[in-house]
Design a protein around this nucleic acid. Structure first.
Lengths: 177, 177
DNA sequence: CAATTTATGTCAACATAGCTGACGTATTCG
DNA sequence: CGAATACGTCAGCTATGTTGACATAAATTG
């Protein structure tokens, strides 16, 4: 199959100028964020490849370790995924002995999630290289610089629509179904 | 099917303390990065849903617009994906008239990628909300604060192993095959 | 107490976007 | 000419997200 004919030799309707300062858009930071995050998750990814888990498991293990006893609903809200998505990885983590479930002490419908020692160690092993990378990137910054980074990152996050959690007059709302 | 028996009621081998200051790991920034990036890509994602494209298309359109005329090899190196992965989305973008290919002027084996007007507009439409979000997050910061953010993000990125691009004595290296 | 709502689990099917392996084709280069 | 290079493509697999529908146990409410 000849590729000729599908490939232009002239420059009709084509832009050859880089998308630069248009509309005052800061493409530099957009790209920095892309590359930074890509490399930021590459460290844990490499570890996870060994144990047969993926990024999804990483997030679950992380937040369960950060807040032992959190409910499935709370975890879903944090991760912003569906329960069917969570179920797959959570089941594997429970079956492999990284996380355990305990019926809620007051509301016994709840399944509160706790890390095992093994789960804690995995979470730490995954956090360690990320922490190193962060410490490295912070190295040259003073206290105000580090504070600026936190302010920036916090400002990038969507405000928690507190109303959504209170205006629950709707049957079957949210990401459910 | 009864769930009873699968759910622990005691607290054997379970950790109930949050993973906090262990080993001086900065879990706060780790999470800030996770949430910040998640919300950062949610804006373009919403737009892409409309046009039937995904994140993969976004990245391709972005970098082709940022560096018109870049080769497929260069794009693969930037995105750190395989050519088979790229092929799928690139083909769609070309077929839909967002990107065009031009045979390299010197090396005619190359397929240099250029955005069309349509492609440029898509890239801008996707960058606009991200830029707004960034501007918003930068609002309270002075010049040194903004510089700190850039320094930090740059420091998070893996150093470009310049040697890898020069020590090409290996046949068929890199991600190829 | 009966009815309903809530918290969670689960089955099935599907989409996106990554991957490996293998092979084809056009072009350049030694 | 032959090998290496730049790129395309077919086929199949995996991970992780989605929607829709339905089940079960416990809490809540009329």
């Amino acid at each position: 199959m000849s590729l000729e004919g599908a490939i232009k030799s002239d420059s009709a309707g084509i832009l050859d100028q880089p998308m630069g300062e248009t509309e005052g858009i800061d493409f530099e930071i957009i790209e920095l964020l892309f590359f930074a995050y890509r490399d930021f998750i590459s460290d844990p990814d490499a570890i996870l490849d060994t144990s047969g888990f993926g990024r999804a498991h990483h997030r679950v293990v992380h937040f369960v370790n950060r807040e032992p006893g959190l409910t499935v609903a709370a975890l879903l809200d944090t991760l912003k995924i569906t329960k069917q998505s969570l179920a797959r990885v959570l089941k594997q983590l429970i079956d492999s002995g990284y996380i355990e479930q305990v019926a809620g002490p007051e509301d016994r419908r709840q399944r509160r999630l706790f890390p095992t020692d093994r789960g804690r160690e995995l979470a730490l092993a995954l956090a360690r290289p990320q922490s190193c990378r962060i410490a490295n990137a912070m190295e040259g910054l003073d206290e105000s610089g580090r504070a600026a980074v936190k302010t920036f990152l916090s400002g990038m996050i969507n405000p928690v629509t507190r109303g959504a959690a209170l205006d629950e007059d709707d049957t079957n709302e949210g990401q459910e179904q």
